[in-house]
Design a protein around this nucleic acid. Structure first.
Length: 591
RNA sequence: GGUUCGGUAGCUCAGCUGGAUAGAGCAUCAGCCUUCUAAGCUGAGGGUCAUUGGUUCGAAUCCAAUCCGAAUCACCA
């Protein structure tokens, strides 16, 4: 049980004994005591003033005395400043916590709760390589999955590959027109980049044709519709849907190039999936649901045969769910896939890691599922995250203004190499160990950079200023870990369990912070927000570095202090490691 | 235009279920390696929390209006 919970219960119990009336944890607020005052936790008394009809000072005195007398193992004293009751926790409480948990590498993790969750993330289009925005998505999805596991959920990571549609055909047409039979292997290009280049080529040619048509006196709208390359692409999509064998063959070939490229990117960034869905297999799903919706009068059919749902009463619009030609649209497929996931895995919750540009779409999806009274409707959750933008604005694949994922990974690893070599601390590493270290640090920096920000908020990435390795960063925390391990390789904490010397402020601060780790894990899961963990780990590492600079560990002033600090060090390293693991970041034993 | 989200230090971000003098990192400046890894530590400067009004003992936080920015509102995905 967390200390805050302990304190709250003690306060509620004390209030009951002191005063008439009903009390619960919502009647007062508990905060960390500000550093300028003495104490560890503070009860804010103002909210009790009205119901008790006493002054804050009176309540504070009575409650403070009661708490200290009734719970001498928990509280060592109190002081009262205005309406704030500052409580000091006994050293013994902190020491017990440390002794009990310092060796537990699972500290903070919850027992299995029997619930099953699917987290869908990544979900790339197969016409272009992954970029920085996809990285945010991948790291977020992976991290959220780990955080849920730490909270006792069984988690399935899934991915829907958008492997069909007009965008793929654009790359295919451009390849047919301009490639002269070139392939990734003939050009020694990574497959996804190779295909992406033709996507850009398509747009260049398309723009050229549109401009030409306009100069021939055709309106812009007409030109965009009738540019030959666009008409060829539309035709190709129809051929694909009709199953025309040359088109299917080309489609398979180009997608296989892309998958080869994706596999290597996923491997390097550490993304993996338990289940991969392909849109080419799921795009026909959902049609049976349309009939169900018509039967239930949730949907209505228009004269031309198209099927709609009216969501205007819910503040949204009328949405199409089936085209007049009988084919299903995006939202229909998604409802179908949602059902398939549920039927296949009996999941209790379905989380979709998708950018906030699709907020409206996901709202519609959930609303339709609810109106159809599908059993899983309420368990659909859109984990919406903000776009990664450049100082110049949004990234646009078709205009080539993107930060490529592979390039960035490579750059981060190179930067890690550069810093490491400059510092020259690992000259005895062999080349295998070195490349592993550069990767750990480079990826650590990148993942931390993208996860330390609240997912809901859009973030700006400036390619001119490379991602930092100092301060509020992954390498800072990794470095703290490596420092601790360096001590722990030379010194071992003995199993001392009673400490008589008073805790120094730096020592107490560390244990105080360590105590919060389980609460932080719970909070990050409740909010589906890895940045909660990132912020916590930074704060913890900072505290440790302060202690490290201020106090000697190996040469402590007494054996007792040495053991105490070794135990603190051990527990800190465990928490840093498992916390970073929840962010998908590895730790080096030395750096 | 409707809906939704955002605006906190020069820059990037915490804090937002109301609490004490609004915090970090980067950048700038000043110190600290004969002692456990200086990717570190200590300190300084830097703020009209977009604006205005309201609720409250108390507002960056809640409410309203205004200004600015973004997303979205396709028989595209």
């Amino acid at each position: 049980m967390s200390i805050i919970k302990n304190i709250k219960e003690a306060v509620v119990q004390s209030l009951h004994e002191l005063y008439e009336g009903e009390f619960n944890e919502g009647n007062f607020q508990i905060n960390q005591t500000k550093p300028e005052f003495e104490g560890d936790y503070t009860i804010v008394l103002f909210s009790l003033v009205k119901s008790l009809k006493k002054s804050p000072e009176e309540i504070g005195q009575e409650l403070g005395n009661k708490l200290v007398n009734k719970y001498p193992d928990l509280f060592s004293g109190f002081n009262l400043i205005k309406g704030f009751l500052n409580l000091s926790i006994t050293d013994q409480y902190w020491i017990n916590l440390l002794v009990k948990n310092h060796q537990d590498i699972c500290f903070g993790k919850q027992a299995m709760n029997g619930k099953k969750v699917m987290v869908e993330y990544s979900s790339p289009n197969t016409n272009k390589p992954l970029h920085l925005g996809h990285l945010r998505n991948n790291f977020l999805g992976w991290s959220v999955a780990e955080i849920l596991k730490a909270n006792g959920f069984e988690v399935l990571k899934s991915c829907i590959v958008n492997d069909r549609g007009i965008h793929i055909c654009k790359s295919m047409i451009a390849w047919q027109l301009f490639a002269n039979g070139e392939t990734p292997s003939s050009t020694e290009k990574k497959g996804d980049h190779f295909v992406g280049d033709y996507y850009v080529k398509f747009n260049d040619e398309y723009k050229r044709q549109v401009a030409e048509l306009i100069s021939n006196g055709i309106s812009e709208k007409e030109a965009e519709k009738n540019a030959p390359i666009m008409m060829q692409t539309q035709q190709m999509l129809q051929d694909w849907e009709a199953g025309k064998s040359e088109v299917i063959e080309l489609w398979r070939k180009m997608n296989s190039w892309v998958y080869e490229g994706f596999d290597s990117t996923y491997l390097s960034i550490g993304s993996d999936f338990d289940k991969t869905y392909y849109e080419s297999n799921t795009y026909l799903l959902g049609k049976d649901i349309v009939q169900e919706g018509l039967d239930k009068n949730v949907f209505n059919r228009k004269e031309d045969g198209s099927v709609w749902i009216d969501l205007t009463a819910d503040g949204l619009d009328e949405k199409l769910v089936l085209r007049k030609d009988g084919t299903s649209v995006y939202i229909t497929q998604d409802i179908g896939l949602a059902k398939q996931k549920y039927d296949e895995y009996k999941i209790d919750q379905s989380i979709y890691v998708i950018g906030d540009e699709q907020n409206y779409h996901m709202k519609v999806l959930k609303l339709i599922a609810q109106k159809l009274q599908l059993p899983y409707a309420d368990d659909i959750y859109h984990l919406s995250y903000g776009m990664v933008e450049l100082p110049t604005g949004k990234m646009k694949s078709r205009e080539g203004t993107v930060v490529d994922a592979d390039d960035l990974v490579e750059e981060m690893i190179a930067t890690a190499k550069h810093h490491t070599e400059e510092l020259g601390k690992v000259k005895d590493f062999d080349s295998e160990e070195l490349s592993q270290l550069f990767k750990t640090i480079g990826l650590g920096a990148m993942k931390f950079y993208l996860l330390r920000v609240d997912p809901k908020k859009k973030m700006i990435f400036n390619p001119e200023e490379s991602i930092d390795f100092h301060g509020f960063t992954g390498p800072f925390i990794q470095y703290t870990y490596a420092r601790i391990k360096s001590i722990l390789r030379k010194e071992t904490a003995t199993q001392q369990s009673t400490f008589n010397e008073r805790l120094l402020p730096a020592e107490k601060e560390l244990i105080f912070n360590l105590e919060q780790f389980p609460t932080v894990i719970i909070e990050s899961a409740a909010e589906l927000n890895p940045s909660v963990i990132a912020n916590y780990l930074f704060h913890l590492a900072k505290s440790y570095n302060s202690l490290y600079a201020e106090l000697s560990i190996a040469n402590a002033e007494s054996i007792e202090k040495k053991n105490l600090r070794l135990q603190i060090s051990m527990m800190t390293s465990n928490v840093l490691k498992s916390g970073l693991q929840l962010l998908g970041i590895q730790v080096p034993e030395r750096m």
